[in-house]
Amino acid sequence: MTSIDRLISLCPPPPTAPATDWLAVEQSLGMPLPADYKQISDTYGPGTFCGFLHLYHPHAHTPWTSLTGPMPSTIRAQLQTGHEQGAPPLPADPQDLFPMAVTDNGEHLFWVTRPAGSPDEWTLAANQARSFQWYTYDGNLARFLTAVLSGQETVPVFPGSLLDHGAFFTPLAPAANLPTVQPEQSSAMASSSDIRAWARDHGYEVPDRGRIPADILDAWQQANTR
């Protein structure tokens, strides 16, 4: 039984999920994607695991949970800025961390994209919202989800109550016409300093250094994504 088979047995998917043109998605991102992620996305579609973990998906119901939307580049730029300003060490170079999921608490799950061009060898990392605590997992997404949803793996940055209602998936209707980020657009994404300035102009309290709180990122995305 494969990791995907175990995941499906543990956490049943919805009857149908939207089809994805993975070639177009990978061309948009400028990188290949792990086979297990594509299979999970094709099986489950956009939605949440245990009402908590939102995998970024090309057909996500909002731009800020879209794999091809603006959030991955924004978060990556934020990590890069913090790294350059002397923030505590990351588990990998900021440019090797690609955000691919977010929790309701504002934690992010990343692919560690090494070695480049070999996505099926990528491992995972997660950070705690509004802190510098990191967790790493030496395996792919399918193994991670199976281990976490079965209770075999405890993620310190996730709540202890995650499995109080068992393992379940809640599908969310895909949105139409979500904006996508082409490779040449990545450098045009707003920097963390731009987002901090916008937040202060709009009455938010935002720290000078470190991660920008998830609620402020969401507000900025809603105000600036059209």
Rank of each mutant, 00 (worst) to 15 (best):
Q185G: 12
L23I: 07
V112S: 00
R76A: 14
A173Y: 03
A129D: 05
I216C: 08
D21Y: 08
H57R: 08
D138W: 02
P213S: 13
E184H: 10
R130T: 11
F132H: 15
P207E: 09
V102Y: 05
T68K: 08
A24K: 14
A125D: 03
W111V: 05
Q80I: 00
A188F: 11
L67C: 09
P15R: 09
A60Q: 03
D36G: 03
T20C: 15
Y135M: 10
D218H: 14
P88K: 09
T103N: 01
Q133S: 07
G117P: 14
P159C: 05
R76H: 11
S192G: 14
Y37V: 01
F144H: 11
D201A: 15
R6K: 09
L79D: 07
P18I: 06
R200E: 07
S118Q: 15
H61D: 15
M1A: 10
L172K: 09
T103M: 08
F110H: 13
D194W: 09
S66Y: 06
D201Y: 07
L145K: 05
P156M: 07
P119K: 07
D194G: 09
L90S: 04
D164V: 03
T62L: 10
Q27T: 14
A142I: 00
P91I: 04
N224I: 01
P15E: 13
G30H: 01
G151M: 05
F98I: 14
P58Y: 04
S193R: 12
R200N: 08
T81F: 10
M31N: 04
L145Q: 05
P32T: 04
Q222A: 10
M31L: 11
Q221W: 03
L10N: 00
T2F: 02
D218C: 08
P15W: 11
P207R: 10
R209G: 03
P34L: 01
P119D: 13
I212F: 07
Q39E: 14
A19C: 05
H165N: 10
Y137L: 08
T43A: 06
P89D: 12
T20Q: 12
S118F: 08
P72V: 10
Y135T: 09
Q95F: 02
T2K: 05
Y37N: 03
H83K: 02
V206C: 13
Q78K: 02
F168Q: 02
A60F: 08
D215Y: 13
Q80C: 04
A167N: 07
E26D: 13
T74S: 09
G210Q: 11
Q182E: 15
P70I: 13
G69P: 01
Q152F: 03
H54N: 13
A92T: 06
I195Y: 02
A197G: 08
R76N: 04
T68P: 03
G45F: 05
F158H: 02
S161P: 03
P88T: 05
S131A: 11
T48D: 07
E205N: 15
L7M: 02
P34Q: 04
G51M: 00
F144E: 08
S187E: 12
H57W: 03
N177C: 09
T225C: 15
R200Y: 02
R143T: 11
F98S: 02
